[in-house]
């Protein structure tokens, strides 16, 4: 905690950060599963790219996306162990495309707002 930060501020930040990340994780998972992966490698892939996600968040999310028809899964043996491999469906790919467009719009809108604020405060 840096100087001037109260525990309440830290807690508020943490809650808001989690809220912000929640939507992004769906995008990240869908994007990462354009290549077939099983849960553990997916988790590592995301963590390596700075989007660490714990297993109790990832697996329920994968199930939800699969139930919505955006992912498909298959149990297969690999290295003498049964693993469940996930891959994005056609519908999932379409949704991902739409979500990415939305994401870019939000990003540019936010940048515009921040730019206005910066000019306004000068």
């Amino acid at each position: 905690m840096s100087y001037g930060e109260s525990p309440m501020t830290t807690e508020s930040f943490e809650n808001l950060r989690l809220e912000l990340r929640r939507g992004c994780l769906v995008l990240a998972v869908l994007a990462a599963l354009r290549t077939e992966q099983y849960g553990y490698t997916l988790r590592k892939t995301l963590a390596d790219r700075g989007l660490a996600i714990d297993e109790s968040t990832l697996y329920p999310l994968l199930r939800r996306l699969e139930a919505q028809g955006l992912l498909q899964s298959q149990w297969r043996e690999e290295d003498k162990r049964n693993k469940r491999f996930y891959r994005i469906t056609e519908e999932g790919a379409l949704i991902l495309q739409q979500l990415l467009t939305e994401w870019e719009q939000i990003d540019s809108s936010l940048k515009a707002v921040l730019k206005e604020e910066t000019h306004g405060t000068r």
């Binding site: 849960g39 553990y40 988790r43 297993e55 199930r63």
Partner: peptide, 13 residues
Amino acid sequence: DILAELSEDIHAQ
């Protein structure tokens, strides 16, 4: 189904 997947994840870790 859930336990099998969790088991695999734990063992991999």
